[in-house]
């Protein structure tokens, strides 16, 4: 199975319900756009930063969240400085930094399986619109199950094409990969039916 980006711990955030954390993220993501003052946003950003050590994460982990968007923050600031003023620049980058670091925190403190379970619960009411939660749950699990299987198929095809001197051709990889995936899918569907999966 694919390991998520979760880092084990026992903080309040680790223990909080996955659904609650996602809700908090949505509220924060909406809330920051309602706040037009950079000092308030700065306080908010520092609060999110403080949650990192409070959840048992060192500065290195916080930095890993911010680093990928650093050039973006610099760009945004420059654009705002050019179009408006430095205060507007700070508003834009504090907003984004706060959301991204809180989103990172949610991802770091929540197991993917808990997130999936929360999602399945959230989908229950959709059943009346024809969304079958069992089918959706099966689909999610199968993606995780079949990533290593398909990656293995990809390796086998690449080796075979390399032996034929076709390793530079993307098409010589993609077409057999798709065909074998579809063939696999037919067999998997048979196996699922044979195990009497029948949620209707």
């Amino acid at each position: 199975m694919i390991a998520g980006l979760y880092i084990d711990g026992n903080s309040a955030l680790h223990r909080a319900a996955a659904g609650l954390k996602v809700l908090a993220l949505v509220l924060l993501g909406t809330g920051v756009f309602l706040i037009p003052d950079w000092p308030v946003l700065a306080v908010l950003l520092v609060t999110v930063f403080i949650l990192y050590p409070a959840s048992g994460f060192g500065p290195r982990i916080l930095w890993a969240q911010i680093r990928p968007i650093l050039w973006l923050l610099a760009l945004f600031f420059a654009v705002q400085l050019w179009l408006n003023d430095w205060q507007a620049g700070l508003v834009v980058i504090f907003r984004l930094a706060a959301i991204v670091s809180f989103a990172g925190l949610v991802t770091l403190t929540t197991r993917t399986s808990d997130m999936l379970a929360a999602l399945e619960r959230a989908m229950k009411p959709l059943a009346r619109f024809g969304v079958n939660p069992e089918k959706v749950s099966l689909a999610f699990s199968m993606v995780l199950r079949f990533i290593p299987v398909i990656a293995q198929i990809g390796h086998e095809i690449r080796d075979a094409q390399r032996a034929r001197g076709l390793d530079k051709s993307v098409l010589a990889l993609v077409v057999p990969l798709i065909i074998r995936t579809l063939k696999t899918a037919d067999d998997v569907a048979d196996a699922i039916d044979a195990r009497s999966f029948d949620p209707d």
Binding site: A139, V143, I150, A151, A189
Partner: peptide, 22 residues
């Protein structure tokens, strides 16, 4: 949406993930 459709949907999501490994 029958079993085969669900499997196709899941396996193409997995294929998309595998493309990300290159």
């Amino acid at each position: 949406m029958n079993t085969k459709d669900i499997v196709y949907i899941a396996l193409f999501a997995a294929v998309t993930a595998v493309f990300g490994l290159f």
